[in-house]
Design a binder for these strands. Sequence first.
DNA 1: ACCCAGGGTGACG
DNA 2: CGTCACCATGGG
Length: 288
Amino acid sequence: MIYATFHKGRALLTGERISPALVFNCGQAFRFDPFADGYLGVACGRVLFTRETNAGLELSPVTPGEYATVWAHYFDAALDYPVLEAEFARDPLLASALPCCRGMRLLNQPLFETLISFIISANNNVSRIKGIINKLCLLAGRPLSFCGLTLYDFPSPAALASLSEEQLTACGCGYRAKYIQKTARMVADGFPLESLVQMDYAAAREVLMKFPGVGSKVADCVLLFACGKKDAFPEDVWIHRVLCTQYGFCAKNHAQLREFVLRRFGAYGGIAQQYLFHCARTHKSVVK
DNA sequence: ACCCAGGGTGACG
DNA sequence: CGTCACCATGGG
């Protein structure tokens, strides 16, 4: 259980450990970077500075109202991670991944931003993904000020849709420029993205995969990181190697993967995936 | 020069 | 349903 207290424009979260370094560097979010003794970034249209202290996780600038309406959900405060991890620990292989994931947490991120970000992620690496997104924000995002600095919000669907393919290519989008433009236009033209949250996993996935540049893996990332579908299990090259080498299961298609994952990890398989993914990526030799 | 990165698309069997 | 060439881009 997470408890929030407030003092002088800051929120202090206690009860469950949340590590900004882990949360913002595990490949789920691309807009937070080290700043001073914490991490600074933009999410949900606001600048946020986070800092891990002995007392807990500090968030600023945050009012009690903003925490209640925005950040509690963003940091997935309703889900008890220690309880979940205790459940995970019953799986010996997953248990061995827990130590390198202390303070891990899945964020509930804005839908449009997540959709575009993971279209960009296709056949790409994290540092380049961050660079591309940063340029898009600089070009078409609303400016936000913080301590004399100017940061930029992620572009609205309309703002992103208004960019030319040349502008998108100039940001480093490469062959994904067309996908981004088409997807942004579909959303700007009124596609009800938020309706995905109410749909079940299979239905929402089917809808998402109709967007250009969204295939099996990107759809699962959006479902897990922005639609609250904790059973979505994105399978990239890393997690494929983990399942294959450690679990002796090499999925041949999505149906088979889903069956295995549900049986092995249950309704929170997507979170298990994130733990295994992060552990594999930080100890490359284990699986490579 | 080659390989890889949180893959998707389209063509073809 | 499965495979496979191709797709920009930058860093190792």
